[in-house]
């Protein structure tokens, strides 16, 4: 059974439809990318999946349970790291546990063991303003992980980073994902990133946005950013580029 399932999601604002009849599934431990040009409704779809908005029609199921319009079940990470500037890293990271009713001290204790694993050792008492962009995204990912019940939505989480940091964080990300078994939907407009990180790719295009294609990526694992140059990788890239409909 799929971990997360969305059925026939349609959503719009002010009478204008943004996404239409979107169905997708995410299996346990899988990384699935949503690839599409800007304005194809990726963010709207995420807001529906995470329960921040109720869709006009359609349903979202987590482990078979209907969670349509219910926030707090699926965690969410944006391009902006959204670490609260007034809290230290440990308090930022353990915030989801506090929100769910844990005492501050217990929440900190529960978050502590993950710092080493996420390469954040020694940052606990720092403020977000003192960390580099890459470190902040790691902290944001740890927070996302701690707030999740096994499913996380990542909305272009690395797109604000420079190319070198981004490439390093991809390798790190694949590595950490193996350890924490988080089922993830990943929004991106970077084709390389999508192929490198995903088990499957959904292509979202048109206005209103629809899922126009689904591509399984069977490249061997573990992958690293060196694979970007291989023949197999490039043929995926060609395939996807042809399928994305650019509308200017």
């Amino acid at each position: 059974m799929a971990k997360l399932r969305a059925e026939n999601i349609t959503m719009g604002f002010d009478g204008e439809r943004v996404i239409e009849d979107i169905s997708l599934k995410l299996n346990e431990g899988e990384i699935v990318s949503l690839l599409g040009v800007s304005g194809s409704g990726k963010t709207t779809l995420f807001n529906v999946l995470s329960g921040l908005y109720s869709p006009e029609s359609g349903k979202v199921y987590l482990d078979g349970e209907d969670i349509t319009g219910k926030a707090g079940k699926i965690s969410y990470m944006l391009q902006k790291d959204l670490l609260l500037p007034h809290y230290t890293i440990i308090d930022n990271v353990s915030l989801p546990l506090v929100i769910k009713g844990e005492k501050k001290k217990t929440a900190r204790e529960k978050a502590m063991p993950y710092f080493a694993e996420f390469g954040l050792e020694g940052t606990q008492k720092k403020y977000p303003g003192e960390l580099s962009g890459g470190m902040r995204q790691r902290a944001a990912l740890l927070r996302t992980y701690l707030s999740s019940e096994g499913v996380a939505l990542l909305d272009e989480p690395f797109s604000a980073l420079d190319t070198i940091t981004k490439s390093a964080i991809h390798t790190w990300y694949l590595d950490i994902m193996k350890k924490i078994n988080l089922s993830t939907i990943f929004v991106t407009h970077d084709i390389d990133e999508a192929i490198l990180l995903s088990d499957r790719i959904y292509i979202l295009s048109g206005k209103p946005g629809r899922i126009t294609d689904e591509i399984e990526i069977t490249l061997p694992k573990p992958r690293s950013n060196k694979d970007v140059m291989t023949e197999a990788f490039i043929s995926y890239k060609r395939l996807i580029a042809e399928k994305i409909a650019f509308e200017f």
């Binding site: 995470s50 921040l52 926030a71 699926i74 965690s75 969410y76 809290y87 989801p96 929100i99 707030s147």
Partner: peptide, 28 residues
């Protein structure tokens, strides 16, 4: 920041928690 508010909401936070963790410290 609306994104910060949505973040707390996505964690299942209540209005009071949004106030406590985002609005109040943001207004200091």
């Amino acid at each position: 920041d609306i994104d910060e508010i949505n973040l707390i909401r996505s964690m299942g936070g209540t209005r009071a928690q949004i106030f406590l963790h985002v609005k109040l410290p943001g207004a200091v």
